[in-house]
Design a protein around this nucleic acid. Structure first.
Lengths: 170, 170
DNA sequence: TGTAACCGTTGTAGTTGTAGAAGGAAGTGT
DNA sequence: ACACTTCCTTCTACAACTACAACGGTTACA
């Protein structure tokens, strides 16, 4: 959106190829099973934990970020609370709401999950420092563009995840 | 592997940042729900269809590519066969095996799924043609490196690729 | 004050996928 | 002929998740 480009066939082909490559790279490197095994909980629970490291959330907010529904969020948080990884408290300004806060132990678990998920694949070591630098810049631009697009009408991703039926990705 | 690079802090940081960016880009753009809705079937069924466009597979091979187990593959193929999207036949050289072949209708459905999944996000239009060209080259190198690594010691990715979120311990 | 709306919870039901045991059919090796 | 294995299927059980309805407590508003 920031700089609309002329669309040539070559450009379109490059875009398609790049996207296919990125998708293949990321999707073939799925570590959700490893995370579930390491933490001893279903992936969505570790996802909830990771969403909470940024700060406390209400059940409603957590529900949105998990792309699930309220009853299931209750279930997940119940389990997490039983394990001592989060605590529930009443919202100071709205007593209808509960605020879910991660505990120290929960944060440690989330960090363990994040460490597994964020570990770059070996393949990235095959790029030279200059190449990495350039790649870094461009991925940064893409991320930036995606972030701003999300605000305007980003629907695409958000909508699809809401209507989705299969277990969420991550 | 091809060209081991000196690991500096800056390099490591760039690698981490690139990987995080790519992951975020791909994972926040999940269209599985859209595919399920468009084809009227669970995502794993469309995945089976997409695996079959490259050519017929035995149940065993399909099971591996789907990262599931044999009984469930039977179930999925049963359903796909009932819909007329695949056909089962006896393997010419080993009558124990069944060969699953995609039908014309099945191939059309797979193409519809692929079209949805492969559609690049709008954000990519914010890159200039030269940037795309460079990005294309580097993603290509990464894909190449990943492909060769898979042969040598891969396992990791393939094994975990199934959304296997079994807690095991509950 | 009354009422509508919202938040989280409980309950219930159904779908999807995971897992293991067992069995028939067919191939392999002795 | 015999045991052994592989391939697929059936059956059963269960875990994980989705979906909907309804309820009590709380807040916002006319």
């Amino acid at each position: 959106m920031t700089t609309p480009q002329p669309i040539t066939d070559a450009t379109r082909e490059a875009v398609d190829r790049i996207w296919a490559g990125m998708r293949s790279l990321v999707l073939s490197d799925d570590r959700r099973g490893e995370v579930s095994e390491a933490l001893g909980m279903s992936f969505i629970r570790s996802k909830a934990l990771r969403r909470l490291v940024g700060g406390p959330l209400t059940m409603r907010e957590l529900t949105e970020r998990l792309s699930t529904d309220k009853p299931y969020t209750t279930l997940v948080v119940d389990d997490l609370e039983r394990r001592g990884l989060v605590v529930r408290s009443v919202h100071p300004d709205d007593r209808r709401s509960r605020v879910v806060t991660i505990t120290e132990e929960g944060a440690a678990a989330a960090a363990r999950a994040e460490e597994i998920l964020a570990r770059p694949p070996e393949a990235m070591r095959s790029l030279a420092p200059e190449e990495l630098e350039a790649l870094d810049r461009m991925v940064g631009k893409l991320a930036e563009a995606a972030r701003t697009a999300e605000g305007t009408q980003g629907a695409g991703a958000a909508r699809a995840s809401g209507a989705g039926q299969r277990p969420g990705t991550g």
